[in-house]
Amino acid sequence: MQNMAVMTRACVDRPRAAQQDRRLMAFTVLINGQPRVLDCEPDMPLLWGLRDLLGLTGTKYSCGKGLCGACTVHLDGAAVRSCSVPVSEVKGAITTIEGIAGPVAERVLAAWDAHQVAQCGYCQPGQVMAAIALIAAGPVDDAALEATMNGNLCRCATYMRIRAAVRDAAQTFAQTVSA
């Protein structure tokens, strides 16, 4: 199911908002395997639809400009910054931290737990999403690890353990694939 803007369903439960803005529409987006309806303007960033309309608060706001990676989600498996993707331009299936599953996700989460990566933890869902997309895309060397994970800020500077966890998860996943 892809980004169906169902104009006829717009604003049924928000008449006052509809009076304010004729552009308010209902966008149906496939999120974590479920079609979810977002009543909003076309240019609302996916981040705020997830957080404020759907209550999927595992996706974090921190910069709003694609600079920190805290809001990273998957669009058809690829990492995207949900703060920089308008709801109307979502052409594919969205996976948030609440919906991750599968062998790569399992290994990444297990590595994050084993290395006790999280401190304040606020950036970690975004780190995990970036790491899953990276490992799922193919073999990970240190250059690829840095190129990708450099995009995700951590003020607690848990970077030593992020590095170790990504390496670990990539290695255990590669082993299962080759086995």
Partner: peptide, 26 residues
């Protein structure tokens, strides 16, 4: 192991910015 690792890593921890009540405004 820390008690908060799993929830934080999986986005389940509720921070101040994640607070939510019915009819809440921003």
């Amino acid at each position: 192991p820390r008690t908060d690792t799993a929830a934080k890593t999986r986005g389940a921890t509720v921070y101040g910015i994640d607070g939510m009540w019915p009819d809440m405004r921003h």
